[in-house]
Design a protein around this nucleic acid. Structure first.
Lengths: 152, 152
DNA sequence: CATAGTATTGACACCAAGTCTCAATGTCAA
DNA sequence: TTGACATTGAGACTTGGTGTCAATACTATG
């Protein structure tokens, strides 16, 4: 079963209708690179209204078919979601994003909950840096500009 | 020395000029509650242009005098920054925000860096939940609506 | 298969947050 | 005091997203 059919099925299971517009948006999303904006999706879906594209993206977000990445600098982009809870490791030079789950934040969050007497619902973690390829590239081109770190 | 004078001094040290507009924006920022939008600041600074308010906020952000909080749901708000690197614990019910630093993410980030062969610049962590006061309130009013967790 | 009920769409106006331009003005070092 | 130049304000523009409402398309059902 193809990716698009799997997604269609999940949408049906939630009681939503399958329309040509939704199919087109999903197809466009599946064609995007590592991360993208709704604008990118709009540009590759002809014959689908702007509002419908935004509405479909929200639907995909609700169904955890896509997630959002907070880029260094503060822009929120979309990304096809790996299954379940995960975080992102973002290369500030080439923009590639890797998902990770292994590095578990839960103990920290639990300790925090106890200390602050909060009941915790969830958390958001993004890590920024430079991937191996970009690091090697950079050592050859020392004048490459640095980016500002959002999380100070 | 008052808060505003301290901030003014930091701006001067960076070689920026002190203007009436900047003074007004800083004063407005200092009067804001826990977190706020630029719109909130705009509304309490008469006689200062919109662009200037945004420009001053960016300056304050660069100087780490304010930071940004990613609220559950995806809105970025501003907040007066506690000194240095920290994270936020956000109550989804009443909106209060607490800073925390004690809960150290560095070891996790270092392990991740090694595993993924990334050079790490920084990270961003927000934790969402319900503060003690809201929890007690809620147990008396079980119909209170739940909010969606952004970071799933 | 026909159809009715209702979910969805598209066009468009609107909103929120932020940037850009450029002539006019303000700041401050000399 | 003045000159260099940093900063401002007004307003147009951009980007990302929502709300409205009549028209259309799905799909469960008969």
């Amino acid at each position: 079963m193809s990716d698009i059919e799997l997604i269609i099925e999940r949408i049906e299971l939630r009681g939503h209708r399958i329309t040509e517009g939704r199919r087109r948006v999903i197809q466009a999303v599946l064609k995007q690179p590592s991360h993208f904006t709704v604008e990118d999706v709009l540009q590759s879906t002809r014959r689908v209204g702007r509002a419908t594209v935004f509405r479909t993206m929200r639907l995909l977000l609700d169904l955890n078919i896509v997630c959002r990445v907070l880029l260094d600098g503060g822009n929120l982009h979309y990304r096809i979601s790996s299954r379940g809870h995960h975080h992102h490791l973002v290369c500030n030079d080439c923009g590639r994003v890797e998902d990770f789950t292994g590095c578990d934040v839960e103990p920290l969050v639990q300790a925090l909950a106890a200390a602050m007497k909060y009941e915790i619902d969830g958390h958001w973690l993004e890590v920024y840096g430079r991937c191996e390829a970009c690091r090697l590239l950079r050592s050859g081109r020392p004048e490459s500009q640095t980016t500002q770190v959002l999380s100070q």
